[in-house]
Amino acid sequence: MDNANAVVALAALAQESRLAAFRLLVQAGPAGLAASRIAQALQMPASSLSFHLKELTHAGLVAPRQEGRFVIYAARFDTMNTLLGFLAENCCGGDPCATSGTPACSPGATSCGT
């Protein structure tokens, strides 16, 4: 991932409704959710949700697919993981940090390897 793609992905997530939708889709897993279920869960009008899902799709963070009359949206875990890797790739000056068996970038880590 390059800086430009990272900025697009981060900008898409830097809005409360889009972040909530993306987190919901991450929880749903690869099966995804119908747009109507997302709107219901987030208590959001369909027109607003459509705009937010379009932004997440443009950023490559979600993928829509047609199933009958429904559009199902699923998180793109490959893009999410690539973004996370891009953000952490220079952790600890680029040196491997998992000497203690715990990645430095894991939740609760306060410094390299702790």
Rank of each mutant, 00 (worst) to 15 (best):
L53P: 03
G68S: 05
R65Y: 01
A63Q: 14
L61I: 10
T57E: 14
V62L: 07
S48Y: 12
L42Y: 12
F51Q: 15
S50Y: 08
R69M: 02
I72V: 15
L49T: 06
F77G: 07
D78R: 13
E55C: 06
K54I: 00
A63L: 12
S48T: 14
V71F: 02
F51L: 15
S50A: 12
P45L: 05
I72Q: 04
F77D: 10
F51T: 14
L42A: 06
E55R: 15
A46E: 13
A46Y: 05
A63P: 00
Q40H: 14
I72D: 04
G60W: 11
A59N: 07
P45G: 08
H58G: 05
K54R: 15
A41I: 10
F77C: 01
G68F: 08
L42Q: 10
L49S: 03
T57M: 05
P64A: 00
S48Q: 14
I72S: 06
S48G: 10
I72T: 09
R76W: 02
E55Q: 15
V71C: 02
Q40I: 05
P64G: 00
S47D: 05
H52K: 12
F77M: 14
S48H: 13
S50L: 10
E55G: 00
G60Q: 08
Q40V: 10
A75R: 06
Q43I: 11
S47E: 06
T57Y: 01
V62Y: 06
V62M: 06
G60C: 11
Q66P: 00
L61Y: 08
F70S: 15
I72F: 05
K54M: 04
T57K: 12
S48W: 12
L53G: 05
L56I: 07
A75Q: 03
F77T: 13
K54S: 13
K54W: 04
H52W: 12
A41L: 13
G60T: 07
G60S: 07
A59G: 08
L56P: 04
A46R: 12
Y73Q: 01
S48V: 14
Q40L: 13
A41F: 10
V62K: 06
T57I: 00
S47T: 09
Y73P: 00
A75D: 02
R65E: 04
A74Y: 04
E55S: 09
L53C: 05
H58V: 11
A59M: 09
L53D: 05
S50C: 03
R65T: 05
S50F: 03
L61C: 04
F70M: 08
P45Y: 11
E67T: 07
S47R: 12
L49M: 11
E55T: 09
I72R: 12
Q43S: 14
R65L: 00
